[in-house]
Design a protein around this nucleic acid. Sequence first.
RNA 1: GCGGUUGUAGCUCAGGGGUUAGAGCGCCUGACUGUGGCUCAGGAGGCCGGCGGUUCAAGACCGCUCAGCCGCCCCA
Length: 418
Amino acid sequence: MRFQAPRGTEDCLPGQSDRWIWLEGEFRALASLYGYKEIRTPTFEDTELFVRSSGETSDIVSKQMYSFQDKGERNITLKPEGTAPAIRALIEHNLCPQGSVCRLSYVTPIFRYERPQKGRLRESHQVGLELIGSPSARADAEIIEATVRFYERIGIDEVEVSLNSIGRDECRAAFRAAILKHMGGYLSGQPAEVQERAEKNPLRLLDSKDPDVQAALLGLPPITDFLESDSKERFKDLQRMLHEAGVKVRVAPDIVRGLDYYTETVFEVQSTRLGSQSALCGGGRYDNLVKELGGSATPAVGVAMGIERALIVLEDMQQGPGPHNPDAFIVIATPAAKETCHRLARELRTAGLVILMDYDDRSMKSQLKMADRESARFAVLIGDDELAKGVATVRTLASSEQREVPLAGLSQVLRGHS
RNA sequence: GCGGUUGUAGCUCAGGGGUUAGAGCGCCUGACUGUGGCUCAGGAGGCCGGCGGUUCAAGACCGCUCAGCCGCCCCA
């Protein structure tokens, strides 16, 4: 029996892991610049947590969750997103007492049962930021700006943020009614399933790519026309702040997001390099969620960014760091030098250098070949001659220059300080 | 979940019913016995995704299945 990784999952292979580690490092560095503290929550949660937060009619809850009953008959779900668990923990541990502000970051796998495609996996990974406790448009601006700075930092520049406001509950109710009224003629001819969905969450009709749906939507005023005046004001403020921050924004009345917990600001960043799965990240304000999950009414705003998708874009742009290459490969030139070579490797590693060598008595030629293939910066050769003189022959692989270096000064030379 | 498409060596791909399945790159060995890359010569490496069927004969044709990819849906 030969096994393969389950459908929609990926192994992160040695050739890729440096890029992952780098990207997560860049994210953590950026998050800490803004004062975010990392939170790590369980891989699985009570199923009800996600039903409550994302909404019964959301795609995630209605068809994409990895849910099961454990041996204690608890209903468990592998987390399909990062916000709800973070907020659950925030409430459980009272991380954001009334009147305070709390900044959380996370790096997490997420699980969604979908038909896999490039950039769409059943297990994927996200990094995210949550700013809890501030109702200010400044908070929205911080999240969006930090998102853009993150992409700039890793080499994805010129990102454009698609921005919308869906207002508060009152406005959305009015808008829902308007959609249903406007679409009434179209909907009556549709399958029951479509009608039902439209009934439950008419907003989801807006981002449909179906030309018929789009045609039926023609003439419908944008949701921003339905915003309460303070929401309108707030949306304008946000745009002004982002403009001042040099963040490019496109107001996109069609983006509504798939999760029910969003209020007011919603946004996403897309890339044309991603094909059909075009969103790099998505986020927005969720002023009702903390209360919905049992906390006290607390405003919040956040973003979740897909790691795989960012890496796909970087790869397409041929950006990102190369692999970490060894500093030196120690070559055993004659059998007598073996022990000296192993001792030297120990010493150099202790000194913080990345050292490779052969353990299988390969020919010197083959050892040099290995050094070359591993892209070591130096080959350090020790044989009878070097033993006699108490030196090593240090060969710079790129230039083929070599010279003798006393063993005592070796780590300095390999560091490139001389 | 729907529609399409593709699975042959580590990688990229030829072969479209008929001996022992090929190429390029990569890998190993040697030419070069203490010097990598370049060149040349040799070598290793294949459940032709899996299961079943048609046939004298299947990598090829048919069915099912698994997986990747593209579009839809949705989104990270």
